[in-house]
Write a protein that binds this DNA or RNA. Structure first.
Lengths: 245, 245
DNA sequence: CGATCGTTTGATCCGCATCAAGATAGGTGG
DNA sequence: CCACCTATCTTGATGCGGATCAAACGATCG
């Protein structure tokens, strides 16, 4: 996944798969580039959905805040990720979460009607959208199960491996692309708990100092942490790990 | 929601909303009725998705089993519910969970290609499907959050209220449509924990004896249990409760 | 150079899982 | 009709994991 998406490379994202070049061009020409500065909100919970976005560069977090102030991060978006497609098709037409730029971010923005019309016009696009949203639904369920059944240490280990692969980092040493607190929130645990697990992970071949991470023994890491994973077989993280190996 | 769906009333389910009568008729005529006996599997995890089903009568549970033998029930289907639509559209084309009839069950069965072709043919159907699957994705996330942030007692209370409303039972007294262990599994808790919460709930106006449930003070129940809910505002259970009140 | 934010570490507490032992109920066969 | 069996449910005792509260440390920034 590239760190940046330009208007020219936009056609390569999964959503536009198997569309003809003309179709892609027709679709993309309606997009408008828009910048968000760090901490700026794309939308809030309950807002009517009016836009569909594709992230071109930067980082966006999607989260919900409970009345007691806790925030659970449900997704962290990077270049190529899309957002807004779900709320647009729902009966309520309202966003079910808050979305906020973490860093300065550039997005390609499309109006609501564009997506609805495009689905009617291009059957392949609706199939792609269905595939994408269906996968989101399954992943949400899988993750809930994953979080319920695994220790904090294992969740962190899996997350780091996954991150390493998804961003194509060097397993022997890389920098975290965002803060530890954001990761903790994403994993649904307290910062204190997250921090504590790091010392445990050191005994399993995962070292973190500051924002620098290093897997010191790939083989040990795979066999100890990921294979032990209670839902290893069906765990998307494990699958990606294996594909790479 | 009726306890049974006949071929004639099939057109009323949400999936066929806003389709013309001709369209509905054309769609439904390809369906084949099929019976499953209690404990029979509809499909297993990893099976290629080949069918789309609509439940006509009976109960079906959707679940995942982890290597250590624990099963997490992700959904319980009754008449009018659909199943299989997600796997059909996913790139893997494989079911991501097991599905098993709890009671003897009758389903309307459609072949995979029927759904894929229909989406291309009827734009409205693809919008309905997108709405449905998008909602499933959001609900899965909401539920994960709900389960992570609420006590066992509150989860049970919310579940019972929701059940009462969804099935249009009499709040002053009704029978559970399935076993307590199935409910516990659905809520991701141990049977022992579930059982323990029942005594606590008695102090909050919810009495359960055997499979008989009674909310003895509706007002107290709404204010004590549901309003306290940490994600009350966005909790679908609460919304339904309020709509009813 | 103090102020603020993010992180680490420590001490304590609470809730749920776990293990284990009864209790209840539904079903079967004698 | 009763004795037995098994599945389901209840109740008790215990332990562990992570939340919470709290304090100190480190880094970044005006």
């Amino acid at each position: 996944m590239p760190q940046n998406i330009s208007r020219e490379t936009l056609g390569n994202i999964p959503l536009f798969k198997d569309l003809t070049e003309q179709e892609k061009k027709a679709l993309i020409k309606d997009g408008r580039l828009r910048s968000f500065s760090a901490k700026q909100y794309l939308f809030n919970y309950g807002d009517p959905a009016t836009k569909f976005y594709i992230v071109c560069s930067g980082v966006v977090k999607v989260f919900r805040v409970s009345p007691d102030g806790h925030e659970k991060v449900s997704d962290i978006l990077i270049a190529g990720s899309t957002i807004g497609e779900r709320a647009i098709f729902e009966a309520s037409g309202q966003h079910q979460a808050d979305a906020q730029a973490v860093d300065d971010t550039v997005m390609m923005q499309f109006p609501l009607v564009w997506l609805k019309d495009s689905v009617k016009k291009y059957p392949q696009l609706s199939l792609n959208l269905l595939a994408q949203i269906a996968l989101q639904a399954d992943n949400a369920e899988l993750e809930a199960e994953h979080q319920a059944q695994n220790s904090a240490a294992r969740l962190v280990a899996c997350f780091l491996q996954r991150m390493c692969i998804a961003h194509d980092f060097n397993p022997r040493g890389f920098e975290l692309p965002y803060s530890k607190s954001l990761i903790a929130a994403r994993l649904g645990m307290e910062v204190a708990t997250f921090s504590r697990t790091l010392s445990k992970l050191r005994h399993h071949g995962i070292a973190m100092k500051g924002s620098h991470v290093a897997f010191d023994d790939i083989h040990r890491l795979e066999s100890h942490v990921c294979a032990d994973c209670a839902i290893a077989e069906r765990c998307p993280m494990r699958k990606e790990m294996c594909k790479k190996a």
